[in-house]
Design a protein around this nucleic acid. Sequence first.
DNA 1: GTTAGCATGTAAGGAGTTACATGATTTT
DNA 2: AAAATCATGTAACTCCTTACATGCTAAC
Lengths: 210, 210
Amino acid sequence: MVRSRAGVLELAILGLLHDTPMHGYELRKRLNLMLGSFRALSYGSLYPALRTLSDGGLIVSLGSDAPPPHALAGKRARNVYELTADGKERLAEALTTSGPAAWDDENFDVRFALFAQTDVETRLRILEGRRTRLAERLDQLRTSAARTRERVDEYTLELQRHGLEQVEREVAWLDGLIDRERDAGRADRRRRRTSSRPGGTEPAGGSEEP
Amino acid sequence: MVRSRAGVLELAILGLLHDTPMHGYELRKRLNLMLGSFRALSYGSLYPALRTLSDGGLIVSLGSDAPPPHALAGKRARNVYELTADGKERLAEALTTSGPAAWDDENFDVRFALFAQTDVETRLRILEGRRTRLAERLDQLRTSAARTRERVDEYTLELQRHGLEQVEREVAWLDGLIDRERDAGRADRRRRRTSSRPGGTEPAGGSEEP
DNA sequence: GTTAGCATGTAAGGAGTTACATGATTTT
DNA sequence: AAAATCATGTAACTCCTTACATGCTAAC
């Protein structure tokens, strides 16, 4: 088995390249945006990752032929990458898996940012998984807060209080998103029932009303 | 120069041991509490860190002599560590430094959790440094949000919106804390002026009214 | 013509994790 | 007597960063 570890970074790259072929430098900027923009990813991470994906046959660089149609022509030396068939397959596969690897702290943001390429069912599974994870955390925090009370100083206490509040807010955020997705899901099923098309693999997309 | 890198973990250990001598296993639990309790620190990190500190002469294990006065006597094989004079010195020194190393994402929480061992001036410097850092982040986020609008999908946008909101809330939290510290600082100066004692190196502490 | 930003990469190293290996003590 | 949890450590490995090395192109 060659697949072994997934790596958030590789998934993020695959996800971005699915929309638009890009070269590393630009990819980095989009990646940083996608990941909330703090914690700027370094080239020392990005280029080796591109290399790995390229070696694995998931992406290819459009070497010296086929200049990007819309953009500033000329300027070689840029390696514009795009997904191969294998890459698309792997991406699609990775996007439908849920499990802890989807809703853990390090992965959730990337998975969320790629929701547009998924269907409502997957989105709901991931959002609910994340919600459950955070609810567990909340439980732990509240329990240990009750246990440690008085044994820690003001500042540690304040830090815990603030941490708790942040998690609570994130849960509330998720609740809102879950509601929205459920509505979208209902609308989707209604649509599918009405039209005779049994529905392909195309993403649900839609929901123009945020 | 032997000092080289500081390491958040080592500072956290020093800070906890300053209050109470402890053995590794217990230290880990307190450490996890202190760091918000998610992201449980592994033994594979903790014990080597204790080793390093021990080798550097900053902490010592009270080997087989002097059983902990208050606690469950008996049970050897536990390495209870405490700060050496050097360790206390290094801790005090580390606690008064500000600079990015104090208010960066990875360090701020630990620094904050150790505020009880600092004076108001240091606390204010760090809180304000952190506030400035976050304000910069906010600026970047808002700018890039304005630039990318329409070029990214709903979900990426929602993620950015949520990230922005979280940072805004943290800034508000800091503002509250800064106000409180300013009040404490004023009270402190007044107290110092009134009493003839010029004030030693003891932490400002106090502030029973949260 | 020189500075700033675009563009790609490599090598060394830091900071942590997982998995392994071991054994004592407490609870059921 | 078995299971849980306390307690300490090591080795291999992962993921990422920093610092280095290189060169092209746009703007001032």
